[in-house]
Amino acid sequence: NITNLCPFDEVFNATRFASVYAWNRKRISNCVADYSVLYNFAPFFAFKCYGVSPTKLNDLCFTNVYADSFVIRGNEVSQIAPGQTGNIADYNYKLPDDFTGCVIAWNSNKLDSKVGGNYNYLYRLFRKSNLKPFERDISTEIYQAGNKPCNGVAGFNCYFPLRSYGFRPTYGVGHQPYRVVVLSFELLHAPATVCGPKKST
């Protein structure tokens, strides 16, 4: 009989979020998941679920829940969905086509923008091939755009693969920082350890 609540607040209220190319993952297990707390949290810009209804989450049990978190621009949030393409979905964070879970995003301009620009948040701009679902690539190898080998030196046709967002408070909404948490639900042939409040007695 599990009684402790799942530590969703640790994920959602973290002081610093990860850059999207180096997205953070927390495994959540052996706890009671009260999703209504999240669902009623006012400032969400997006709360979209795939393969599961957000209002039914509290009735369900899962083997594991993974909480992935990172920061992207407002106009990139739409790429955090199954079957998407674009710089983020291709080179930074890719969801599987059969994704079961929820994508939760909110504007973090007050936290993550600075006058003069916040350059701490990076994304991958160049990559030889697209990421596989949930693949994480933190390499900083110089990207070779031409035929000539770069030998690890940036220059003509040789690019550092990461780019900084440089968030400023005055940017338009599409270019403002958004914090994103992706909850993915794993249902294995194993005992369920993460259940909603109704199922955990």
Rank of each mutant, 00 (worst) to 15 (best):
A18M: 07
G146H: 05
N40T: 13
Y66I: 12
A154G: 10
A145R: 06
F185E: 01
N4M: 10
L60W: 07
Y143D: 00
R163S: 15
D9L: 14
G74A: 05
G146Q: 02
S184P: 01
T100E: 07
G172D: 00
K48W: 05
V173E: 13
I88M: 05
A105G: 05
K148V: 14
W23L: 01
V65E: 02
R136T: 06
L5V: 14
F12S: 03
V181N: 02
T55N: 14
N157W: 03
A22C: 09
R124I: 01
A33T: 09
G146N: 04
L95W: 01
F99I: 04
D98H: 12
G117W: 03
G86A: 03
K198P: 13
P197N: 15
R163F: 15
R136Y: 06
R16G: 08
L187D: 14
Q176F: 02
P43A: 09
I72F: 01
L5S: 13
K94E: 00
I28G: 05
S113D: 00
V153E: 14
L125F: 08
D68T: 04
G174P: 07
G166C: 04
T140M: 13
R73A: 15
S29I: 08
C158I: 02
K199V: 14
E76C: 05
Y143R: 02
A145T: 06
S53H: 12
G117D: 02
V20W: 03
T3K: 11
L162Y: 04
P197D: 12
V71R: 02
V181L: 06
F156E: 04
C158H: 02
G166L: 04
K94Y: 03
S200T: 14
S139V: 06
N64H: 14
V37F: 15
K148E: 12
Y143Q: 03
L125S: 14
P133E: 09
A89M: 04
A192I: 12
G174E: 08
Y171D: 00
W23H: 04
K110R: 12
L125C: 11
L38M: 11
S78F: 08
A18F: 07
R16F: 10
N40W: 08
V52M: 09
A14E: 08
H175E: 06
S129V: 12
N13C: 07
G172K: 00
F156M: 06
F47W: 15
S69W: 05
G174R: 06
R127A: 07
V11A: 04
S164W: 05
S36L: 08
L57I: 08
N147Y: 06
D137I: 04
S184R: 09
P54R: 14
E186A: 08
T140R: 12
G117N: 03
L125P: 15
D68V: 03
I28R: 04
G101L: 02
D97T: 12
N75F: 15
R73S: 15
N118G: 04
L131D: 00
N130D: 10
C6M: 05
P96W: 03
S139Q: 10
A22H: 11
Y178W: 10
D97V: 12
S139I: 05
F47R: 08
D59T: 13
K26I: 12
K110L: 07
K199I: 13
Y119P: 09
P169H: 06
D34Q: 07
F126Q: 03
L5Y: 12
Y123H: 12
H175K: 00
E186G: 11
I2N: 14
Q79M: 05
Y119S: 09
G172W: 02
E76T: 05
C102K: 02
Q176N: 04
G117M: 03
R73W: 00
S113F: 02
R179W: 00
G196L: 10
N157V: 02
Y165C: 00
G152E: 11
Q84Y: 06
D97N: 13
P133I: 04
I104N: 00
Q144W: 05
K132G: 10
L131A: 03
L111E: 13
F47I: 12
N58R: 11
F8W: 10
P191Q: 14
C102P: 02
I2F: 14
I142N: 03
S164D: 04
P169S: 06
P149I: 08
Y39W: 13
V11S: 04
K198E: 13
C31V: 06
S164C: 05
G74K: 06
P177F: 03
P133D: 06
Q176D: 00
C158F: 02
V115C: 05
S129N: 13
V181R: 02
V181Y: 04
A145M: 06
S200M: 15
L122Q: 12
D59G: 11
G83P: 01
Y50S: 02
G172Y: 01
P149S: 07
V182F: 00
Y93N: 01
D97M: 13
T85Y: 07
A105M: 08
C49S: 03
Y171R: 00
F126N: 05
G101F: 01
A33K: 08
N107C: 07
G152F: 08
L131Y: 03
I104M: 12
P191C: 09
Y159M: 01
A33P: 12
C31I: 05
Y93M: 02
Y39I: 11
L183Y: 02
E10W: 06
N30W: 08
P177D: 00
N92Y: 02
K56E: 14
P191H: 13
N118C: 05
S139R: 10
N107W: 03
D97L: 14
Y39E: 15
T201Q: 15
Y159H: 03
N4C: 09
F134L: 09
A67C: 09
F12L: 10
K56P: 06
H189P: 15
T3V: 10
H175W: 12
T170I: 01
F134K: 06
C102I: 07
Y121K: 06
I88P: 01
R163G: 15
S184C: 10
E10H: 08
A192Y: 14
E76Q: 12
W23M: 02
T201E: 13
Q144P: 08
N120D: 13
G146R: 03
L95P: 01
S36A: 11
L122K: 13
I138E: 14
G196T: 12
T3D: 11
W23A: 02
G83M: 10
F44V: 11
R127L: 02
V71C: 06
Y171P: 00
C49Y: 05
V32G: 07
A67M: 13
A105I: 09
S200L: 14
Y143K: 02
E135Q: 12
P54W: 14
K48E: 09
L187K: 15
I142G: 02
P149T: 06
I2R: 14
L162K: 03
A33N: 08
D98Q: 10
K56F: 07
E76N: 02
P54L: 14
